[in-house]
Design a protein around this nucleic acid. Structure first.
Length: 418
RNA sequence: GUGGGUAUAGCUCAACUGGUAGAGCACUGGACUGUGGAUCCGGGGGUUAAGGGUUCGAACCCCUUUACUCACCCCA
């Protein structure tokens, strides 16, 4: 063997033994989202750097220090997408989808952020996300959150819904000034991180876990009390909608979203199975984003689910990984059987019966062990004896009962049994 | 970017506080030359992450590097 090459830090392989879990989580997403009228969109993994700088926000950590940026032969400044909303909005605008009225789209795929990996956080990670464009009314917020709740419960995932309103351009700037003023006045009592965040992202300060900061934070002006009438009404309507839909939630006044584009509704589903990175899904409203990216004023709301985080939860729950197993494993008992078995497999496959065989041939005992290992429901034994009689022995792997079946009838018998 | 922890067979881990590398699982062969999950016997597999130092002798002690991992920051 020559020098071993290992994978890129923070970018993981999903091996066949685990991939069933991913299929499950993607299949359930497609199923549930379709029930709510969301349709899948696929956009490139690479986008112009400017899309994220303008859309997500130049000052956010994601854009300023976590993005993979590169020059494409010196011509264009490109970036690996660090999140899915910006690209989706870009496609929405570029194809003029807004002329057709409200749209509900979803996507799934890899995202890239160059951070230090840890549990539940990777440099290439996968998100499943939904975006609803063109509806400003709070009913869509409630519907979308309920859909996410529905999705999680179908997977058996227990997560807590936290809800907040982060205001809008009418009320947030004034509140931020107020908060900054208050924090600056009490800077001496705050930790170093908080003093920095006071300027950069004052809402984050409210989330600080340092004990010495708490007394100051408890008396800080609260966003909820400074929302404008529009935001307040919206927030209340979302809560009422969730109540009507039977979705449990808690209002979390300190819940903040990291991306610049969020307004009003902000929400997060968290799980305690995840270690420090407790968010399974997070989302919110982004009414100004479409316009920021060059489209007509269009309200929107969306969320993203962390697929790796979901798999971690499912694993912690002990939920078994669904496995694809062949229906039949063909076993050749001797040389004539070994020749016949390939052709028989082809016939069965044409009839839609999933089958496998050990192409090495070899000892009977090994083949049947192989059938056991791959989880086949039946073994089909074929040798000179059987061929002479124009049949094969069908062995039920669970009961070990063997019944002769005419070769001509095999495909029909097996595809009927499914 | 900053801290802590860990690196021994494909996987999970041993190896008497320095004496020359072992088990289980997995794989593979046989007992059973046409019948699996059990049992028994055998086999392949390791520069003990890498490099340097101390020592008669290092998986073990010291230094450096790398990787992995958890946490901070931030987020899905």
């Amino acid at each position: 063997m020559s020098v071993k090459i290992s994978g890129v830090k923070g970018m993981n392989d999903v091996l066949p033994a685990q991939v069933g879990r991913w299929h499950e989580l993607e299949a359930v997403a497609r199923e549930v989202f379709a029930l709510y009228g969301y349709r899948e969109v696929r956009t490139p993994v690479v986008e112009p750097h400017a899309l994220f700088a303008r859309g997500v926000g130049e000052a956010t950590d994601i854009v300023s220090k976590e993005m993979y940026v590169f020059e494409d032969k010196g011509e264009d400044r490109l970036a690996l997408r660090p999140e899915g909303t910006a690209g989706t909005v870009r496609a929405f605008i570029e194809h003029g989808a807004y002329v057709e009225g409200p749209q509900k789209w979803f996507y799934m795929g890899p995202m890239f952020r160059r951070e230090r990996p840890q549990k539940g956080r990777y440099r290439q990670f996968h998100q499943i996300g939904c975006e609803a464009f063109g509806v400003a009314e709070p009913a869509i917020d409630a519907e979308q959150i309920a859909m996410l709740d529905d999705y999680l419960s179908r997977l058996g995932v227990k997560a807590t819904l936290k809800l907040n309103s982060v205001g809008d351009p009418a009320c947030r700037p004034a509140y931020l000034d107020l908060l900054r003023g208050y924090l600056s006045a009490h800077a001496a009592a705050l930790c170093g991180d908080c003093r920095e965040r006071t300027q950069k992202n004052p809402l984050r300060v409210l989330d600080c876990k340092v004990p010495t900061c708490q007394p100051v934070l408890e008396r800080a002006p609260r966003l909820a009390e400074h929302l404008c009438q529009g935001c307040r009404d919206h927030f209340e309507a979302v809560q009422a909608g969730l109540g009507a839909l039977g979705v449990a939630f808690t209002v979390e006044p300190r819940l903040v979203r990291g991306l610049d584009y969020y307004v009003r509704t902000a929400y997060e589903f968290t799980s305690d199975a995840l270690g420090a990175q407790s968010a399974v899904a997070g989302g919110g409203r982004y009414d100004g984003l479409v316009e920021t990216l060059g489209g007509p004023p269009t309200p929107g709301i969306g969320f993203a689910l962390g697929a790796e985080r979901l798999t971690l939860i499912l694993e912690a729950m002990g939920r078994p990984v669904p496995a694809a197993r062949p229906e039949v494993f063909l076993i050749s008992a001797d040389a004539p059987g070994a020749v016949a078995v390939l052709g028989l497999a082809a016939t069965l496959r044409r009839a839609g019966v999933a089958c496998d065989l050990d192409a090495r041939g070899g000892k009977f005992a090994r083949q049947i062990r192989q059938a056991e290992r791959v989880g086949a429901r039946f073994a089909l034994v074929l040798g000179g004896q059987e061929l002479a009689a124009g049949e094969a022995k069908l062995r039920d792997m669970a009961t070990r009962a063997e019944t002769p079946v005419k070769l001509a009838d095999l495909a029909a018998v097996l595809s009927k049994g499914r």
